[in-house]
Design a binder for these strands. Structure first.
Lengths: 152, 152
DNA sequence: TCAGTTTTGTTGCAATTGAAACTATTTTCG
DNA sequence: CGAAAATAGTTTCAATTGCAACAAAACTGA
């Protein structure tokens, strides 16, 4: 018998998190693409600008945790589609601040409630105390996994 | 004030899960690539075959939840590197069964403990009861997110 | 039996992604 | 001031990914 019992992939926490996250993300992404022609990076940019108009691309990259290239391309696509607009920043000619256009706002006002509804649907499978526990545990895990923690 | 408060991305569960999962996966992937020349799909294939020698590519795709193309390419790479071998299946000329080679086993015996150690390191930030809770909640969420559940 | 269908795994091609190089602007400091 | 370094954002190019088409083998049922 050469079977090794050193590790069971399907029980391995990073694997389980990855499968869960991908399952959820793919379902959301399919709906956003189908109903609004939005990619996930675009949706993230819209979500953040909808709540914080006037951020720059760099600030967006920080809050969405996305690569600056991904942010740059998401912005370009949204501007192409007339959903986002740039305005010059007063004192810095390199960057610009970002705002939803009228059309962008209309879409945001449709997408955001759907996103919340999706989240509610997921969370409704959990008891109130489990929902609290989940949020707390995600915080803890995020801290434990943070790149400035020396793992290994 | 045009700020919309319909949704706060950084509190949005799918977003948080995605960031957490990506942070963990990227750190593991970097270590596997650097120390063993393994991609994540390759590591997953090795992990499953290490524990279940003799599976076929289709069975691998099912247990790893990966696309069959990804599995096919991971297998091809591992065979190229002399870490995996095919053997004919008795009654089916289309598929073959998969086994770690001697070299594959050596690598598996090194990688698997490291993976466990990484997981332990993450979980060690949580109390014993929180660890239990985390696993239970992941199970619940996975069920809630499963594609045969009608969300939306 | 044997034509049509299903299953297994690979390949081709197009879209997505990421790292590095690049441009333009601003900041730093001798 | 002005040269060097830093910062913001874009572009280029190569690697990764995913879907559809495909070939080979196995199964189905008239």
């Amino acid at each position: 018998m050469t079977t090794r019992t050193l590790l069971n992939l399907t029980e391995f926490l990073p694997f389980r998190l990855s499968v869960l996250s991908n399952t959820i993300s793919e379902r959301i992404a399919a709906a956003y693409r189908r109903d609004f022609g939005l990619s996930v990076p675009q949706w993230r940019v819209m979500a953040v600008i909808g709540q914080n108009p006037g951020l720059t691309a760099t600030q967006l990259a920080e809050t969405t945790r996305m690569d600056k290239v991904a942010v740059s391309r998401a912005i370009a696509g949204l501007i192409d589609d007339g959903r986002l607009e740039r305005r010059a920043t007063p004192h810095d000619g390199r960057s610009s601040t970002l705002y939803l256009t009228r059309r962008g706002e209309e879409i945001y006002d449709e997408v955001a409630p759907l996103a919340r509804q999706f989240e509610d649907e997921l969370l409704s499978q959990l008891s109130a105390s489990d929902q609290k526990a989940l949020k707390r545990l995600l915080d803890l895990m995020a801290k434990a996994a943070s790149p400035d923690q020396p793992l290994w």
